[in-house]
Amino acid sequence: MPDPFSLSVIVPVWREAPGIESSLKALASIREAGHQVIVVDAGSDDGTAVLAGPLCDRVLVSERGRGAQMNAGAAAAGGNLLLFLHADTRLPADAVTQLETFMTSRSAWGRFDVRLSGRRALFRVIAWFMNQRSRLTGVCTGDQAMFVRRDAFEALGGFRAQPLMEDVEFSRRLCLVSRPYCIHSPVITDSRRWEKLGPWRTIFLMWRLRWRYWRGESPESLAQAYRSDVRNA
Rank of each mutant, 00 (worst) to 15 (best):
G34Y: 01
A33W: 03
A75R: 12
E169L: 08
S105Q: 08
D45R: 09
T89C: 15
E100P: 03
D143K: 00
S29T: 10
L51Y: 03
L85S: 00
G79P: 07
R150C: 12
R124P: 03
L27M: 06
A68E: 15
V61R: 05
N80Q: 01
W128I: 00
S117F: 09
F123A: 12
P54C: 04
E100G: 11
A42K: 01
V50W: 00
R150W: 09
G53T: 09
M165F: 15
A52V: 05
L83G: 04
C56S: 08
L116W: 11
V59P: 01
V148A: 04
G65N: 03
A161H: 14
G142C: 06
Q69F: 09
G53N: 06
E32D: 09
R64M: 12
F170Q: 06
S171L: 12
A161Q: 12
E154T: 14
L85I: 01
I30H: 05
F159W: 13
D143G: 11
P92A: 08
Q98G: 12
A145V: 03
L81M: 05
A108Q: 10
L174T: 03
G110I: 08
R172N: 07
L91P: 13
Q98P: 01
A152W: 13
M70H: 05
M130C: 08
Q144L: 09
D45T: 07
G43L: 11
N71Y: 09
G43H: 09
W109Q: 10
R66Y: 14
F84N: 08
L174D: 11
V125W: 08
A93Y: 00
L81W: 01
D88C: 05
E100S: 10
R150M: 11
F153E: 06
G138R: 07
T48Q: 11
L116S: 00
G43N: 13
G34A: 03
L85Y: 02
Q98Y: 05
S171G: 12
L27K: 00
A68T: 12
L122E: 15
G47L: 13
L136I: 03
V139Y: 10
V40K: 02
I30D: 03
Q132E: 10
E63Y: 05
A87T: 10
F159A: 06
